[in-house]
Amino acid sequence: MRDNAKGGALTEVTFYILLALHRPRHGYAVMQFVEERTAGRLILGAGTLYGALNALQEKGWIAPVGADAGRKKEFAVTPLGREMAARELARLKELANTAEEILKEARNGEAIPLLLDAAGDPGPVAG
C-alpha cells in the first residue's frame, strides 16, 4: 500500500479500512462496511483486503483484538491508526476548503483562466 504517511496522504482503501476499524470488525465486515458506505463504488476484494490488513498491522495502525478462541479474527484501529485517520481527515478538509475557495472565485469572475484549444487559440473565457 503506497500511503504517503509523512505527507499525510492515505489511499482511499487505507482510509476506509481505518474508519471501519474504529469498531472491532473481521474481514468480511470491513468489506461490507466499505461497500455500504460508498454505495458500491468501492468494492474491496478479499485478497486486497488481506494484504492491506497485513500492511497496516506491520505499521502498527491496526491490531488484532480478542483472544484467538473464535475462528474469525477481528481487528481494531490503534491510537497511532486513529491519529493517522484524524490527520487524513484534516488534510482532506484543507483540500476541500482550498478547492471550494478557488471554484467560488472562478464562478465570481475573480480568477480568469486562459484556456487554449489544440490550435493554441484562447477558448471561451469564464466569467
Binding site: 500500500m1 503506497r2 489511499t11 482503501v13 468494492i43 474491496l44 476484494g45 478479499a46 485478497g47 486486497t48 494484504g51 492491506a52
Partner: peptide
Amino acid sequence: GKPFQLHSSNEDKARY
C-alpha cells in the same frame, strides 16, 4: 451476480 475478484486495487493486482 457480481464479478468474483479477489484483487480489486491496481496496486494489489500488480503485486499479484
